Amino acid sequence: MQIFVKTLTGKTITLEVEPSDTIENVKAKIQDKEGIPPDQQRLIFAGKQLEDGRTLSDYNIQKDSTLHLVLR
């Protein structure tokens, strides 16, 4: 499925993911596309910070959802 990741600069990254993918996995995909190390990434969805060990389906993230990427 496709999800979107919006950065603070207003750029939107499109990712191909599975509901069973972990947040860690998603961060690795963002690193592949953007070169941002996962340890600098914070992903936010519906006002919640997403934890590495959980999956997209744990957070009820569905296709065409938009996550927000904050760098630390």
Results as ranks from 00 to 15, higher is better:
residue 51 E to S: 09
residue 50 L to H: 00
residue 40 Q to I: 05
residue 55 T to A: 13
residue 35 G to R: 08
residue 38 P to L: 06
residue 62 Q to S: 05
residue 33 K to F: 05
residue 57 S to V: 13
residue 43 L to D: 00
residue 1 M to P: 02
residue 29 K to W: 08
residue 42 R to A: 06
residue 20 S to D: 10
residue 8 L to D: 11
residue 20 S to N: 10
residue 54 R to W: 02
residue 18 E to H: 13
residue 1 M to H: 15
residue 11 K to W: 12
residue 1 M to D: 03
residue 63 K to V: 05
residue 24 E to F: 14
residue 27 K to S: 02
residue 24 E to S: 09
residue 42 R to F: 13
residue 53 G to F: 13
residue 22 T to A: 12
residue 46 A to W: 11
residue 67 L to A: 01
residue 51 E to G: 04
residue 34 E to T: 04
residue 25 N to D: 15
residue 64 D to L: 05
residue 30 I to R: 00
residue 48 K to T: 07
residue 62 Q to K: 13
residue 13 I to T: 08
residue 61 I to G: 00
residue 42 R to G: 07
residue 17 V to A: 14
residue 72 R to V: 15
residue 43 L to F: 09
residue 28 A to F: 06
residue 60 N to T: 08
residue 51 E to N: 04
residue 4 F to E: 05
residue 15 L to I: 07
residue 32 D to A: 13
residue 45 F to W: 15
residue 65 S to H: 08
residue 53 G to H: 07
residue 60 N to L: 03
residue 42 R to S: 07
residue 4 F to Q: 11
residue 51 E to T: 03
residue 58 D to E: 07
residue 54 R to Y: 11
residue 50 L to Y: 01
residue 67 L to N: 01
residue 7 T to Q: 13
residue 57 S to R: 05
residue 53 G to I: 07
residue 59 Y to R: 01
residue 6 K to T: 14
residue 3 I to P: 00
residue 20 S to L: 08
residue 22 T to G: 06
residue 66 T to E: 08
residue 61 I to H: 00
residue 67 L to G: 01
residue 40 Q to E: 15
residue 68 H to S: 05
residue 46 A to D: 03
residue 37 P to K: 12
residue 1 M to G: 07
residue 67 L to F: 04
residue 47 G to L: 09
residue 47 G to S: 06
residue 30 I to H: 00
residue 10 G to P: 07
residue 29 K to I: 03
residue 3 I to Y: 01
residue 29 K to A: 14
residue 48 K to D: 10
residue 69 L to H: 01
residue 20 S to F: 10
residue 17 V to L: 09
residue 10 G to K: 03
residue 15 L to Q: 01
residue 51 E to K: 05
residue 63 K to S: 15
residue 53 G to P: 10
residue 24 E to V: 07
residue 54 R to V: 14
residue 34 E to N: 11
residue 18 E to W: 05
residue 1 M to L: 08
residue 17 V to F: 10
residue 33 K to D: 06
